[in-house]
Design a binder for these strands. Structure first.
Lengths: 149, 149
DNA sequence: TGAAATCGGACTCTAGCTATCGTATATCAG
DNA sequence: CTGATATACGATAGCTAGAGTCCGATTTCA
């Protein structure tokens, strides 16, 4: 149903880590090794995740020793919908309602199912919901109250 | 990310089918064979799906020839959150934020990740969103009331 | 020159979704 | 009573995407 995959999760953790680190000193760089070690994540996947974030333009990279990544876009400028799109690819709620005009002729179920456009509506509703959430909302600490340590 | 699995999709199609059929004559029964044939779905899975809906109390069954299923609860009484819970089991957005108190000690990532309760908040936000959607909204043809098209 | 970093491809492993088969039981029509 | 059509249920195989691993190449700093 509704579940982030691991790379999305890793990506959020990395962005949050970098965001907090650069809060004081914006020139601070973060390596994949640092993120992986800090949170106990598998290095290879963490590296791939950060690379993907870089290819998407969310962060920028510096090669070589003392290299690493720095935030390029403000996390307030990125919606959760956009982020999920980058990390997991655009997907539809149901098999018959992928919002591509050409890949779908009528309906996966022999066009006897009229549910398609109805699900399309629901799909848009979800998309609007996700677009209304900024990454900064997620990565920031303080929009909550006392949950125990 | 956000994607229904097939049984959920089949379930929605079946419920919609039954709902429209019973609109005129509430005593009409619907068999798994009928649903499967109408929409070109695999019979076995359709049958299992309807059985699941019956076990969940959404529909009721009649054995034997001329038997089949009838709606038991109004689709306005069922939220999408509830339905997804029944069909796919309760799930969390992220691995570290499953809302079970006992199964999770600190955090899947060696409790060095403070993102858990933040994700928990997001999780609740999504749950509220899904709880606000009724199945009748999805299964009915036009639901443009209120929201902009 | 070597250590540490990004970059990239190819691969295995696995869980969960999807589908199929076989069988038992219940009910109605004739 | 018998056959047709239902639900009910378990076992199992196939498939796909997610998750992780392995190996190597390139770049940069000290």
């Amino acid at each position: 149903m509704i579940k982030f995959n691991r790379t999305t999760e890793y990506g959020l953790m990395a962005l949050r880590h970098m965001s907090r680190k650069q809060l004081m000193d914006p020139s601070e760089v973060t390596s994949a090794r640092e993120v992986a070690d800090t949170y106990g994540l598998p290095f290879e996947i963490t590296a791939k995740t950060l690379l993907r974030l870089k290819d998407s333009g969310l962060i920028q990279s510096a090669h070589g020793a003392k290299g690493g990544y720095t935030l390029q876009k403000s996390l307030e400028q990125i919606s959760l919908a956009e982020f999920l799109d980058l990390m997991e690819g655009r997907q539809s709620l149901v098999a018959c309602a992928i919002d591509s005009d050409e890949s779908l002729l009528d309906c996966a179920y022999g066009n006897r199912c009229e549910i398609k456009h109805v699900m399309g509506r629901l799909n848009e509703k979800v998309a609007r919901f996700l677009s209304g959430i900024q990454l900064s909302e997620i990565t920031q600490e303080s929009f909550n109250k006392g949950s125990s340590p």
